[in-house]
Amino acid sequence: MIDTLMMYMGYPFVRYAMMVGVMIALCSSLLGVTLVLKRYSFIGDGLSHVAFGVMSVAAVLNLTNTMIIVLPGTILAAVLLLRTGQNAKIKGDAAIAMISVGALAFGYLLMNKFSTSTNLSGDVCSTLFGSMSILTLTKDEVALCAVLSAIVVIVFILFYNKIFAVTFDETFARSAGTRVNAYNLLIAVVIAVIIVLAMNLVGSLLISALVIFPALSSMRIFKTFKSVTIFSAIFSVCCAFFGIVISMLAGTPVGSTIVAADIVAFGICSLIGRFTGAR
């Protein structure tokens, strides 16, 4: 088994997949804690469906570099979602649900009507559940992913204390003169970037798993913001690594395998939490 693994690792495309998987898992787990605590767990879902919708537009327009419109489109949706969250004519979760299913339906409609591809259901399935395309990444795509991940990590570290303050008590942060709206916007933009990155890996239906499971798991065991954040990063990276390894050895779909690994690890964390009495 180790031999097979070593043989696989000899291929550059496998190493690329590994790197990209780990980077995306790291990024999504960092903001996962904030999103779960802000009750934005489903923003991941909503935005990824928007990304799916935009992607189908790109497919219909026959754009080769989908990133050009997918990233700005998703960021725009993130900003809009956040604004409705504040204006509260339509409540945050309802707005997310609306945009989410709307984009999904619209995207599928477009793909169905205008797609030139012969394998439509295959295309749709791979955007929804993540494709093997992670195994066909080019060097440029890996580089782009690395740059964006690095930016996300640096932004997160630089604004860690502000993110904590804004997440823990928005009212107090506002009274202390912290620019809460600006930081919420920053969080939304970063999330949009992460989601677009993660689409390739797990597909738009499973993205929420990458955001939610690491945070929930480490909240079972740890009680301070810092330890929860650090542990969820480690958790997420490990799950992504083992998920990819298992999927290669067993020939299972990458995205679903990573999520399955997350679920198993979540179970373990819950047990540990129960025995150490952290709950």
Binding site: D169, T224, K226
Partner: peptide, 15 residues
């Protein structure tokens, strides 16, 4: 919400 007393008190210094 996971937050220690120390983290919360320190967040008072944000301004």
């Amino acid at each position: 919400f996971p937050a220690s007393v120390k983290e919360i008190v320190l967040s008072g210094c944000q301004s």
